[in-house]
Design a protein around this nucleic acid. Structure first.
Lengths: 204, 204
DNA sequence: TAATTACGAAACCCTTGAGTTTCGAAATAT
DNA sequence: ATATTTCGAAACTCAAGGGTTTCGTAATTA
């Protein structure tokens, strides 16, 4: 209705502001989590006012949804998976695709979302499809490729392995688990994931 | 000062109310997490009023601290570890020491504590020492015992394995990860932890 | 220039929830 | 009996934060 003829006259919207606000939202999310993130803080960080934020998004939840989807865009490119020759390096490459700190913020953001997911299940569903599923699928593809070329056992439980990677990644940087999960992903992959994939024998 | 001579006269405090309030707090925590838990809800659930709650605890955070410590009391009895003969059964026994739903509530409680830990780091430290450390230590002891009797390889990375168990347990029941971490602990232990402990060879 | 729309800052409204106080009733001491 | 303390319920205070509105200014078009 408005889309085609909107804003025939008057000052144009500054579209760089959209991304400035989303970046500010992601930074704040990473620092304080969903409940800790206030709209005033986001606006201030984006060097604008709340009015301009609410001119673009109807609510805090919708801003967060779009910020999360934006964050995952191109972050795990399923089309363009790493191919380092061995599974170990592929898995690690998937987790550190960006320079200094970028991947770290992503993990921090994801770990502070508890309340958002339980309170906005409709929006959470969209995020789930846009972020978690591709991430997990990328892990799975790398493992399937390794299995196809005989690097890991054909009997390996790929599904469990790739879910555990996601779980450990999500938990590791959370403040509450910082004292216990001191292992980094490299150690987990080298000493747990890979041995289990190569020797899937169990006791049962 | 007051401890010895307090309440010489007047109605006595109902000490069963203390545990009723703590139980109500734990139930509410399991359902709604730390921020979702209101003091009114706790009081109502304990069939009392907020006044009686605040007569016993100075703040919500201190009530939660005591509830968490109480919860862990005897929950992971380091003195009395399971001894089923094999590591697999020992690890599983540690996680299901109580009848129907009791262990489940514990996990739900722990998963809704994000904000509590970041906002009350002093109290969180007390909880950390009282809950996480004994839990992780129990896992470690079971694994060391299994290593001593030759059930798992002497080269196994026990520390990583027991930390991953804690991480996966903590993440698994969180709503936001429910779609991805569909594996239960039995599967993780059988298909990942045990194979890795028995064949700790890695690529490097 | 005049109308229109976006901008950023501030004031404002409204709900939620932590923590306090009040009050009548019940229990326990002197 | 009377003073004292607890009980449970309700009313209250106060701060935080989501969301809206106002207002003076800047940009854009007719």
């Amino acid at each position: 209705m408005k889309k085609s003829t909107e804003a025939a006259v008057g000052r144009k919207r500054d579209h760089t502001l959209n991304t400035r606000i989303i970046e500010a939202a992601l930074d704040t999310l990473a620092e304080t989590g969903f409940e800790g993130m206030t709209m005033d803080a986001v606006a201030t960080r984006a060097k604008t006012g709340k009015a301009s934020v609410y001119r673009r998004w109807a609510s805090k939840a919708e801003l967060v949804r779009d910020a999360l989807i934006q964050m995952s865009k191109g972050s795990v490119e399923t089309e363009q998976l790493p191919d380092k020759g061995c599974l170990r390096d592929d898995l690690l490459a998937l987790l550190k695709p960006y320079p200094a700190g970028y991947g770290e913020r992503k993990i921090k953001v994801m770990s502070g979302l508890g309340r958002f997911f339980t309170e906005h299940q409709d929006l959470a569903e969209e995020v789930m499809q846009g972020v978690f599923v591709p991430w997990s699928a990328a892990n799975r593809q790398l493992m399937e490729r390794a299995m196809a070329r005989g690097e890991i056992s054909a009997a390996a439980d790929i599904e469990t392995a790739c879910q555990v990677i996601v779980a450990v990644t999500a938990c590791r940087t959370q403040a509450q688990y910082g004292r216990l999960i001191t292992r980094d992903l490299t150690t987990v992959i080298d000493n747990l994931i890979l041995p289990a994939l190569m020797h899937p024998t169990n006791v049962a």
